[in-house]
Design a binder for these strands. Structure first.
Lengths: 147, 147
DNA sequence: TTTTCTGCAAATGCTTTGCATGGGA
DNA sequence: TCCCATGCAAAGCATTTGCAGAAAA
């Protein structure tokens, strides 16, 4: 994981460079994205800020996540069920492991990803630019939970 | 690619086994899914059937794709732009290679996929159930095309 | 005949947009 | 001061659902 403080600074700088105002709401959203613990959804971000900004609207979260995404500082993960999750800590393509029960998302380090990319290239002749690699399963905690 | 005729028969049998009526609309949708040329969307399927069923509603397509999916006979591919595409020819998780220029989609055979799944399991402790592995790049033809 | 399926329209649920006010720079 | 940003509500969009009539078995 990248240092959240560093990521936060980077995002704020990028906002400044592009002449976007640094409102308290915007900075608060940027801070959450810089951490991106558990890969938050818009809903999660909104709820997390209810304490500090009781009147903050969902629209503001949507607008700012979209803005930061347009600056290339957040990775959007759209899923088949329509849910969108965000990662502003590692805003570049990387593998994910998703728990189908508790919806937790983990970033594994996969040694074999480089080899697989090479294999794809060799077999198809494609020049590979990016990827979306997700695994779905049940996390340790959910495997042992009594329910 | 699996023989579309075989896939069609399998889907129809599965429908019969589960006591679902074989309406003309349902069978027509099953036939398109059995071929799944170009990984059709609901919209695409609906338009393709306008000739034979001018009054067919989108709801019917949605309901039947959902039904066949619930029988495990179609793979749903949700993309970041919100579009959902379906594959009833190979209804199980498999890797895709997408050309970002001409939108061609290839199904590569990746030897390293099994190893990667094992690596994910070993590193995270997850019990892996399925995956979504897509690579994006430029195909051979588009690499050499003069533009 | 019985039960499911279809077509239509209304209702979702998530995301975006219009507008007037509020607040950065 | 000058605009951009926010909050609210309304509008969009793709998908789902309720209902009455139509069709499969």
């Amino acid at each position: 994981m990248t240092d959240p403080q560093t990521r936060y600074t980077t995002i704020v700088n990028r906002l400044r460079e592009n002449d976007h105002k640094l409102t308290p709401q915007r900075l608060a959203i940027a801070k959450i994205l810089a951490h991106s613990e558990g890969h938050p959804s818009v809903e999660t971000i909104h709820q997390a800020l209810q304490g500090d900004f009781p009147t903050m609207s969902l629209a503001t979260v949507y607008r700012n996540v979209l803005l930061i995404k347009s600056l290339g500082e957040v990775l959007e993960l759209g899923f088949a069920d329509g849910s969108n999750r965000y990662d502003g800590n590692k805003p570049y393509p990387h593998p994910h492991v998703v728990c189908v029960k508790c919806k937790a998302i983990i970033d594994p380090d996969l040694e074999s990803l480089k080899d697989m990319t090479a294999e794809v290239s060799a077999e198809t002749g494609f020049k590979i630019l990016s990827h979306r690699v997700d695994f779905f399963g049940v996390c340790k905690a959910c495997q042992t939970s009594i329910k």
